[in-house]
């Protein structure tokens, strides 16, 4: 009897340990693997989504239009206080988009041009690496997404992102949304958010909102980096392009023609 009870306790203990260890092992094994998803019929699909910005053709008005359309589409609040601002896409001058690359004899046209900045949907995203809950993750097609319901609001991703692409909801954003778009969720206070490369539009078979805004101007290209026939690949092979802080090794997927 004594023997039986001991044996039982040993087995039960080992089993409990095994059950406790399993999720950790699974997590280690699955760390950094891109998240698979099932595309709906009619969805735009790619192996690796990327964007090319032709800054030569951008005007202040167009930049502002992109920002407005994107923010309206995604229920991004308009908060006056710059400390609490939420931004998905916005324009910067060259010296802020590419700090350290300006010099005193730089072309004034380039220096005053609007540079659209947004999440770079990096191939090796630092934000995904640091997130303690996998609330931010990279999808198989390269889009870096957020699960707003899982985010604990620790803001480690904001410290990790070298592009300042992420915003935190310092207060309830809903009173600051002009007209709510019922097609897209609003957020609550205490979570981080950022550009999602319009994953919700791609799922419906339409191009990202900002790309749509720039359609006739041919200054924003979006497509599959893995497909040699895609428009982005053609633009990249015929123009010299640069990426923001490529030296940091995050492998940004937004390219700029200067």
């Amino acid at each position: 009897m004594e023997n039986g009870r001991r044996k039982f306790l040993k087995i039960a203990g080992a089993a409990a340990l095994g059950l406790g260890v399993k999720p950790v092992i699974d997590a280690v094994a699955g760390a950094d693997e891109p998240v698979k998803y099932v595309a709906r019929e009619g969805a735009l699909q790619a192996k690796r989504w990327a964007m090319v910005v032709d800054t030569r053709k951008f005007t202040q008005e167009l930049a502002e239009e992109c920002r407005k359309v994107c923010h309206a589409e995604h229920n991004v609040p308009e908060i006056e206080n710059p400390k609490h601002e939420i931004k998905w896409i916005w324009s910067e001058t060259f010296e802020h988009a590419f700090p350290g690359h300006e010099h005193e004899y730089s072309d004034p046209d380039v220096m005053t041009r609007p540079f659209m900045v947004l999440c770079n949907h990096c191939d090796d995203p630092a934000c995904v690496r640091v997130c303690p809950t996998k609330a931010t993750f990279k999808r198989e097609d390269g889009i870096v997404l957020m699960d707003m319901h899982r985010c604990i609001g620790c803001r480690f991703c904001m410290a990790a992102c070298p592009f300042g692409a992420r915003s935190f909801n310092w207060k309830d954003p809903r009173p600051y949304i002009g007209e709510t778009n019922d097609e897209f969720p609003t957020r609550m206070k205490g979570v981080v958010e950022k550009c999602n490369f319009c994953a919700e539009r791609l799922a419906k078979g339409v191009m990202p909102a900002c790309v749509e805004v720039c359609k006739d101007k041919e200054c924003l290209f979006f497509g599959d980096l893995d497909d040699p026939e895609s428009e982005v690949r053609k633009v990249l092979s015929t123009n010299h392009t640069v990426r923001r802080k490529a030296e940091l090794g995050t492998n940004p997927m937004v390219y700029y023609i200067i």
Binding site: P23, V24, A27, V28, A31, D32, R129, V130, C131, P132, T133, K134, A135, R150, C151, I152, G153, C154, R155, F156, F168, N169, M188, K189, G190, V191, V192
Partner: peptide, 26 residues
């Protein structure tokens, strides 16, 4: 101090529910 810094403290057990060994915070 970590708890009061969280935007959504009631979700803090997500760190255990979705263990992420790649994250230093874990």
């Amino acid at each position: 101090f970590i708890i009061v810094d969280l935007g959504q403290p009631q979700r803090c057990l997500n760190v255990l529910a979705y263990p992420t060994p790649g994250s230093i915070l874990f």
